[in-house]
């Protein structure tokens, strides 16, 4: 019996094919303003924003093990930041997006200091409590409309683009750039030392710690980076909504429960899973949303079925059955020579 020489690779034929697929998809999306209708752009913006939220939450929960149900704190912060800076300080709305991202990242550091004292379920509840504190604080902010919220003045929304189509194109570019940026950063992070540490933490935190992984620091990096991205997405969401109120901005249903739904049905702890999950959600929403309460029941049933039949999400199912992977992220051991 000969012992085969072994090698470790990331790239496989399926990831090479995957990269070609992704490259053509990105090219298609980049050129969308040339061929898509205003309505298609609107839907794509919505999809981009939710895909980004899902990937960010997955980065947080699926890799760093920080199961937060309080990410709406940063979505709302981004939205309120955009409204305050653009309507009250006169800063161009699209310029506000990175500013509120930075502000949220700074604010997330003391919040992390508070929340990281809690573990598991306590962390989840704690993060929700922080988001509720944000919501209640927003109710008290009378210059921004208090409990009733405020509208983005039409002239400010129109400063992004005079005609509706131009506005949608401008927001489309920003949303796409933001989404690609977030995906690339997550991808690179996962392939870096931090990514290795994260994978170790995901699989077993104690073992990771005993192997010398600085768990606290790694988690903090992920938490702050996620806050940065989530707030920028939040700013764009409310630039599209044109009106903000505390209940809408800090809604646990809209910005966390739905996002968890996407990540769970897509596959927690995989790069592709949340993207697939978000696409499935939009497929369901576009076809069934007019059914009213029945639609919500369908969503619930889908979540339960996926959790029972494919505990690792639909992407997990696809990956284990067909051994395919879109991105060169996972290490594989293969024999060098065939026997």
């Amino acid at each position: 019996m000969t012992v085969a020489a072994l090698t470790i690779v990331r790239a496989t034929p399926s990831t090479r094919l995957g990269l070609v697929f992704i490259a053509s998809l990105v090219a298609g999306l980049l050129s969308a303003p040339l061929w898509a209708t205003t309505d298609a752009l609107r839907l794509l913006i919505d999809i981009f924003l939710y895909v980004a939220l899902a990937c960010l939450w997955n980065f947080l929960a699926g890799y760093a093990g920080l199961v937060s149900v309080g990410q709406q704190a940063f979505v709302g912060l981004g939205g309120y930041g955009l409204f305050a800076l653009s309507a009250k300080a006169g800063i161009p709305p699209l310029l506000c997006v990175p500013i509120v991202g930075l502000a949220a990242a700074l604010l997330s550091i003391p919040i992390a200091g508070l929340l990281f004292r809690l573990r598991g379920a306590y962390f989840a509840i704690g993060s929700w409590v922080v988001a509720e504190v944000f919501r209640l604080s927003a109710i008290l902010l009378t210059p921004l409309g208090g409990g009733s919220g405020m509208s983005l003045p039409a002239r400010i929304a129109q400063s992004v683009g005079r005609a509706p189509h131009d506005r949608f194109v401008a927001v489309y570019w920003t949303a796409l750039a933001l989404l690609l940026g977030i995906l690339v950063i997550i991808f690179l992070a996962l392939r870096s030392r931090t990514g290795l540490a994260l994978t170790a933490i995901r699989d077993n935190e104690l073992a990771a710690r005993s192997n010398g992984v600085n768990v606290g620091r790694t988690k903090l990096i992920v938490y702050v980076a996620t806050a940065f991205g989530t707030a920028m997405i939040g700013a764009l969401i409310f630039l599209q909504r044109l009106r903000i109120s505390p209940d809408a901005a800090f809604s646990v249903n809209d910005w966390t429960a739905l996002v968890i739904f996407m990540v769970v049905i897509g596959g927690l702890g995989s790069f592709e899973g949340p993207i697939l999950g978000a696409l499935i959600y939009f497929l369901l929403r576009e076809t069934l949303a007019n059914l009213g309460p029945t639609y919500l029941m369908v969503l619930g049933a889908v979540a339960i079925l996926v959790m029972l039949l494919a505990p690792r999400g639909l992407w997990g199912l696809v990956r284990s059955r067909w051994q395919i992977q879109l991105l060169p992220l996972q290490l594989r051991v293969i024999p060098l020579t065939k026997h």
Partner: peptide, 21 residues
């Protein structure tokens, strides 16, 4: 006819859809 689901965000969403789509 579009249902706002008693949610201002959803109301904005369906309004945008009615306008663009």
């Amino acid at each position: 006819v579009r249902d706002s689901q008693s949610n201002p965000s959803r109301a904005a969403e369906v309004a945008a859809e009615l306008i663009t789509k």
